[in-house]
């Protein structure tokens, strides 16, 4: 036991040094830094804008007017205003301020991306760890299931899942919490997207666990009488978590893309909530040969593009940093 504590300190120091070096590698990667900065700005606006709208009425008459004009659901008579100093992104068919709607939509898109990817991380890590650790027949069966699911058409499964489970889950939820009915589409969407995106994660984690479980420290833990659950939770999962998180950052943009795709089709986020996909869909509805309302498509489209590019750059950057570190 005496020897145990200094070793722990050593391990901690190693950990922090490793972290610093991957962070350094990440910072040396200019595109990744650019992505991280863009992402930080986007998230900053998404967080501060609603707060600004909330506290504006406290500052007298002008503040109140500000909060009303820019409320994402406040209808007004200024329909189809082109972008101007007052309405940065213009206004939509109901005279709502598009900038405000885009900010809220970006928030929803990011939220769906992060939580959906988190679900895929949990399923993938659990599945891959159990398969890799158990080995033998259990491993074969579990990985065969992954193979089968791989050949399922993912987006089609999500569409079937979302359209069918929505009413089912909605009724169940409404019985418990009456107000939750509006959230059901949101929840089924997150769960559905998470449920089809964990396959690659499971394969990566399994491969990691397979190489980990033959290392001496696992044998040492076994000799010391550690139970399987202790080995998995104390020794295996902490060691695969780094890779899991890196692949998580790569999953987020793909889920954001899926979500906006489904919302675009009317299968995702429902009004009055809006995500970037459904905002673009609203813009497309207004396409007509007489008058062009370009800002309805270009503004949410550009924000979605910026979000996806920055998420991808950050994901790639963190993966490269991790891989370079492991090679050297």
């Amino acid at each position: 036991m005496n020897k145990g504590s200094p070793k722990l300190v050593n391990a901690d120091q190693c950990g922090s040094m490793e972290k610093r070096s991957s962070l350094g590698l990440f910072l040396a990667n200019k595109p990744a830094c650019l992505g991280a900065i863009t992402l930080a700005i986007l998230i900053g606006i998404v967080i501060t804008w609603p707060i600004a709208l909330k506290i504006a009425p406290l500052f007298g008459q002008e503040g109140q007017a500000f909060a009303i004009t820019y409320h994402p659901l406040a209808l007004s008579d200024d329909q189809f205003q082109a972008p101007s100093v007052k309405h940065w992104f213009g206004t939509d068919v109901h005279g709502r301020d598009l900038f405000s709607r885009v900010v809220y939509g970006t928030g929803i898109s990011i939220l769906v991306g992060i939580t959906g990817a988190l679900i895929s991380l949990i399923i993938g890590v659990a599945w891959g760890t159990v398969a890799g650790y158990a080995g033998g027949r259990i491993d074969t069966i579990m990985m065969r299931i992954v193979d089968v699911l791989y050949s399922m058409p993912g987006i089609i499964v999500v569409i079937v899942l979302v359209t069918t489970s929505e009413r089912f889950v909605g009724d169940k939820l409404a019985a418990i919490i009456p107000t939750a009915k509006t959230m059901t589409r949101f929840l089924t969407l997150i769960i559905g997207l998470g449920a089809v995106s964990w396959l690659t994660m499971a394969r990566i984690i399994r491969a990691q666990v397979l190489s980990l479980k033959n290392l001496p420290f696992i044998d040492a833990a076994k000799v010391l009488g550690a139970s399987h659950s202790r080995i998995i939770f104390r020794h295996i999962i902490p060691n695969v978590l780094g890779i899991a998180i890196v692949y998580w950052t790569l999953t987020v943009p793909s889920i954001v893309l899926y979500e906006s795709f489904l919302s675009y089709l009317g299968l995702g986020i429902q009004p009055p909530m809006a995500s970037l996909g459904s905002l673009i869909a609203e813009g497309v509805e207004q396409i007509n040969p007489v008058k062009v309302y370009w800002w309805l498509i270009v503004c949410p489209g550009a924000v979605l593009l910026a979000l996806l590019v920055s998420l991808n750059l950050v994901g790639d950057g963190s993966r490269d940093a991790l891989e370079t570190k492991r090679l050297t």
């Binding site: 893309l257 673009i280 813009g283 497309v284 396409i287 498509i297 593009l305 996806l308």
Partner: peptide
């Protein structure tokens, strides 16, 4: 890679 069809098509 980040330009989905539903942004590109309407534009």
């Amino acid at each position: 890679m980040c330009t989905p069809g539903f942004i590109l098509a309407p534009i």
